[in-house]
């Protein structure tokens, strides 16, 4: 037999990639041949549509800085924005567990409404199913999103080239640690709120700044490390980072030191990386910093030409180490 689904298959790492390549892509095919991207691009007459889907299974449902509701709307908005599209409409399919308190449902739905209003997008259709108690963990949300790709915009890993600057929109690791603190099993409290936020306004400002944008990607499961390894492999380039340039908040660093995590692999929900030609780096950086969600954006590395694709990071001591994708989600360490 081919074994069973493991948690690792959902961790944003190499096992998830393996599942996609060995089971999903052969079945669903990849007609556009577009590299696996946050959104599929569909040509409808003269308009290029971006179409995406995502599921949200976060536990607990509520955490500092957001809830499954704000996560679902922002996550969908962000996937559309990463292909250079501006989001137009979202659908939301709710799967509710028998026994879920109705005020929790109300709170989640109002979070979705607020998030949609903030991002300037409408939830146009939805569906609700209920399953017996124990068959789901309170509530799951599946979304789909449609956006319109701006004219002349071609964004994706295929355009990443040696010489490009890598811009990171803010400090990393907030969401993963906020969830850990909300679960109160390993941490009792952490003063870090999730970075859950819509990125479409920052992307719009960037695209209107005149800077050439080669690739955009939001950093969700598997953290920045997994996203950069995926982009390096898809573009056949080598991404070299500088450790000192990568912002990590004090409490996220403290939580990672305590539990033995590496912040590079911790999930984010309101952060993205942008690949822009070196000549446009300053313009792009200045523009991105005017958006509230990316006020602390920084250039954290450059794209190089090496024989093999990959990612490496230069420590503050001038030494280099390679960064790899984990097979599943990161586990805490005592050693």
């Amino acid at each position: 037999n081919r074994g069973r689904v493991e948690m690792a298959h959902g961790g944003g790492g190499s096992k998830m990639q393996q599942l996609i390549e060995e089971i999903l892509l052969p079945a669903f095919g990849n007609p556009e041949g577009a590299a696996r991207h946050d959104s599929a691009l569909l040509q409808v007459e003269k308009i290029q549509l971006a179409f995406t889907t995502d599921s949200y299974v976060v536990r607990p449902l509520f955490f500092q800085g957001g809830s499954i509701g704000s996560l679902a709307v922002n996550g969908t908005v962000n996937d559309l924005s990463m292909s250079g599209a501006y989001p137009v409409a979202i659908s939301a399919g709710l799967i509710l567990e028998e026994g879920l308190p109705l005020e929790h449902l109300q709170a989640v739905v109002s979070d979705m409404q607020t998030a949609a209003r903030t991002a300037g997008v409408r939830i146009v259709t939805g569906d609700t199913k209920v399953v017996e108690r124990g068959r789901c963990d309170g509530m799951y949300i599946n979304t789909a999103g449609v956006g319109i790709v701006r004219d002349g915009v071609d964004i994706g890993p295929h355009r990443v080239q040696p010489g490009d600057a890598v811009i990171l929109s803010g400090d990393i690791g907030r969401h993963g640690i906020a969830i850990l603190a909300a679960r109160e099993d390993m941490l009792d409290y952490c003063d870090t709120a999730s970075d859950c936020a819509p990125l479409n306004s920052a992307v719009t400002i960037l695209l209107n700044s005149g800077a050439e944008v080669h690739c955009l990607r939001d950093l969700t499961r598997g953290g920045m490390a997994s996203v950069l390894v995926e982009i390096a492999q898809a573009s056949g380039t080598f991404i070299h980072l500088r450790e000192e340039a990568i912002p990590v908040s004090a409490s996220v660093r403290a939580a990672c030191e305590l539990l033995g995590y590496d912040p590079l692999y911790i999930a984010n929900e309101g952060r993205f990386v942008a690949f822009v030609p070196a000549a446009d780096a300053e313009t792009a950086l200045k523009a991105i910093r005017t958006a509230s969600v990316s006020g602390e954006a920084k250039i954290v590395g450059t794209v190089q030409k090496r024989e093999t694709a990959g990612v490496s990071i230069c420590s503050k001591y001038g030494t280099e180490r390679h960064i790899y994708m984990l097979s599943g989600e990161q586990l805490p360490r005592i050693c």
Binding site: D262, S315, Y317, T319, E320, R321, R333, C335
Partner: peptide, 11 residues
């Protein structure tokens, strides 16, 4: 872990 993470053997 520290040696590998910070590349200390290269120093």
């Amino acid at each position: 872990h520290s040696i590998v993470k910070y590349g200390l053997d290269a120093l």
